[in-house]
Every structure is written in structure tokens, then in C-alpha cells.
Nucleic acid binder design. Sequence first.
DNA 1: TCATTTCATTGGGGAACCCAACGACTTTTC
DNA 2: GAAAAGTCGTTGGGTTCCCCAATGAAATGA
Lengths: 146, 146
Amino acid sequence: MAAEPPLAAIRSLPSWLLGRAAARGRALVAEALAAEGLKMWHHVVLSAVRDLAPVAQADLGRGIGLDPKDLVGILNDLQSAGLVVRAPDPRDRRKNAVSLTPDGGRLLDRCEKAAHQANDTLLAPLSADERDRFMDLLIRISGTEG
Amino acid sequence: MAAEPPLAAIRSLPSWLLGRAAARGRALVAEALAAEGLKMWHHVVLSAVRDLAPVAQADLGRGIGLDPKDLVGILNDLQSAGLVVRAPDPRDRRKNAVSLTPDGGRLLDRCEKAAHQANDTLLAPLSADERDRFMDLLIRISGTEG
DNA sequence: TCATTTCATTGGGGAACCCAACGACTTTTC
DNA sequence: GAAAAGTCGTTGGGTTCCCCAATGAAATGA
């Protein structure tokens, strides 16, 4: 029963540390993407569209865990900027087939570079070996592999 | 250059996984604390007050990284519920000396139990050894040790 | 004395997250 | 082939977290 330093009760909670680390990561990535004029979700959607195109909005949202409501706004932004196109799906007229434009592909490349740099900064305190280990643990905790 | 599975570009970003894991942790803790009628920040402030009392609001906010503006609202809630008291500091009349009431202490105990259970659920996929390792890495990434 | 700083408080706001309901359209089922 | 049930994109609402600017009161240092 050693005397705990002040604030240890909160600071030693995994959920607390996770929140702080995530906030730091978010801030670093947001700062990096701001140079391209994009938010985090713009980048995420852009990347998912490249991987899945042509894809319906509902499938897109499910793939990245984004609410359909919020996806509408993101796609409006991306389409206005000419990074993405929505085309009616002839096989199912309820659907929009979302695809990447050449401009969107180029911007995505730059975003990925920026995001990777931000993540390098985030993980700077860790060795390469520790980063691998960290990612492995993170994947198992995040519930992403379902 | 093995073909990456779809969505790997985003899902393999540490900042992305960190965000998902933190969201899961937040949800688990929020659910646990809801049984006591408290939000995450109520619990955090309550815990910090116990460790630091009597403490000025500004010091409290700095200790847990909470904006002074938001701290006002949290303390209003806690004081209305009789969990915390604000007393003018005779040595510096600008300050409010915040302290815990007996009720606040009892509720905090219950909150800590609930929060620990939620964190056990969060870390359930990890062995005890891996949890220690994960926490160590997390501390170094979160920028909390400054 | 007076300039600077810190205090608690009020104001506003951006961004991530989630839920309910709608018209248009599809598929299923009788 | 018509009604039922489900899905699509969209619009509406809402909560939580995180940060900045400005105020009046009070302390501090020159």
C-alpha cells in the first residue's frame, strides 16, 4: 500500500490514458490534414472510396463506422471540391455509386503522406519494435477485427 | 507488395485505431458511470478533488487537463448534488477551495469500482502481462508524463 | 501607484458521435 | 400484381468532448 501520487487514480485508468493518447493523435493528424484543407473524416472517406469504388453510400458508411447522416455532409464537401463523384446506380436506383476523381486520388496521396508523418510523430517515443507490439495490442482492444 | 485488403490504409493507422479503442473505452466507462448518474468528467473531477482538496478550481483544471469554462459547469452539478463544496479561500479571495463531502467520497468509491470493471472489460482481450506492457506504451505516447 | 498576472465565470464555437423519421425505391410474399 | 417489409439517401434533431476570448475581482511586483 505505497502512498499513491496525486491524481494516480484517474491517470492510471486505461480508458483515461487511451483518451489522452487518442486526443493527441487526433490533434496531430488534424493539423497535418489542415494543410490540404481536409478534416479527418474527409481523408477517411476518400481512402475508403478508393478501396471500394464504385460503392454505395450505405456500404461506405458501414465500412468505416460513420453515420449515414454525417456521410452525406462529407460527400457533399468532397463532391463540391471535385474529389469524388456520385453517379446513380442503374441496377438499383436507390443507390449512389461513389467513385474517386483523378484530383481526389492525387489529394488522397498527399493526405496519406501527411497522416503517416503525423503518426510517426505520435509514435516517436517508441522504438520500431515497440510500435509493432503496440499496434498488435491496439487492434485487439479496438474491436476492429470483428 | 502484397495486395492490401480493402480499407487497410485507414485501419492500420495508429491514430485511427487509437481513436476506435478510445471510443470503445469511453462508451464502456460512460455506461458504467450512468448507473450512478454521473458523466466521465464528473468522476474525473471528483477523483481529482479527493486527491488535491482543498484545491482552487484553476489548479484542478490544470491537473486533469480540463478547460476552466467546462469545470465551472461540472462543479455546479457536483455541488448541487451535494458531492462537493466550494469555500472562499481566506488567503486568496479570488480562489475557491474545492473539497469533497462525505456523500461525494462514498459516490466516488462506487464510481471507481464501476470504472475499474469497465476497464477490465476493455482490456479483456489482453493477458495481465500484456496489460502492463500496453499501459507502459500508452503512458509514453499520451504525453501525460510531462 | 500602476502594470501585470491570476482567479472564477460567462460567452461562443468546432468536431466527433449517435438516433429518429422521411420519400424514393427495391425485394419479398401472398 | 399488389401489399408488406426492407433499404437507400437525405434531413432533422441531439450529446459529448475540446478549445479560445473576454470580463470583473483580487493578488502581486515594480
